[in-house]
Design a protein around this nucleic acid. Structure first.
Lengths: 166, 166
DNA sequence: CTAATTTTGGACTGAATAGTCCAAAAACCA
DNA sequence: TGGTTTTTGGACTATTCAGTCCAAAATTAG
């Protein structure tokens, strides 16, 4: 998963994978069938894990759960490589419906988590607002990847959050 | 440019390029030196053209210039392949400083265009808000690529714009 | 301990890749 | 026209890739 996260699907070679996994080629193919299959599993794993983390961030936030979620989304643990799912959506979704489907589900889960935090009683009513928070956080990932100063990104997020939360 | 836009850098082969350009391999290499060099030129061209279009959208908008710009950014002409620069930032920026630099400049130009539209007198004062609009529009590109219903995306944008503009 | 089964290393295949090279064709020019 | 320069087609090289295959090693079972 980490290798795919860092390099994307096409740029990851079988040698990269077998080396990272400490597996021989034959073991790899007998276990996973093909590169694509492992990739989809890695993507699913990343998504599940990411959503779980996001919910945990929301639950354990001290005062402002929405802010904590935005921070978590805009500064993914992986470092400069951003969010694996956004990377993969960008690289593959237009040509690969399976990836697109996992991506859609992930994005919907993010939005749903936002909605429940914003209005636990009527999450449906704040769906568009939740979607806006989500899209905003995802948009800043591009700034980050392009090497924009972290301070600028933080200001953007802060400003937007202040306005959106009114 | 169109081929790189559609397929990304790595996935575009020399055969793809020479066929699209109607050029032989030798002519290609004598004209551009290498694949990377043509790619950077294509990226520059895309950026210049995109910013010019965006400014034109802002200038010729009937009532709400910010809204028109958001629509233009969230629905790039190329179709489902989104914005070439965001694609390339995602694919290459973390490992290629030249691409990252072009990406940064492009994003800054977008933000500047927003800022001048929001407050022509004091664009500096609304920089963060401009950045928020920009990030939001860019974020929705991921939704689009993942195949989210266009209506949902439009609602997100509308909702966010309404709130951000207050 | 032995025999059957599973797992492993890594050589191998065929296809695709970016970039080079040169003889032949085309364009140019005096 | 005849000679020079530029451009072109496409064969070629060296590398990389995903995926296959099998003999040897390891594991398991009786």
């Amino acid at each position: 998963m980490k290798v795919f996260w860092q390099k994307g699907f096409e740029a990851t070679s079988l040698d990269d994978l077998t080396k990272a996994m400490g597996l021989s080629r034959s073991s790899f193919y007998s276990a996973f069938g093909c590169k694509q299959s492992l990739f989809l599993q890695a993507l699913e794993h990343y998504s599940k894990n990411g959503i779980r983390n996001l919910k945990q961030v929301a639950d354990t936030a001290e005062d402002d759960a929405v802010d904590a979620m935005m921070q978590a989304l805009a500064n993914p643990k992986g470092g400069p490589q951003g969010c694996m799912l956004i990377n993969c959506i960008t690289e593959l979704a237009p040509h690969d419906e399976q990836v697109a489907a996992i991506g859609r589900r992930h994005l919907e889960n993010i939005e749903e988590t936002f909605a429940k935090v914003i209005d636990p009683e009527h999450p449906e009513a704040v769906r568009d607002k939740a979607s806006a928070y989500s899209s905003l956080a995802i948009g800043t990932l591009a700034l980050r990847k392009a090497g924009m100063p972290a301070e600028r990104i933080a200001n953007t997020l802060k400003q937007a959050k202040t306005i959106l939360s009114t």
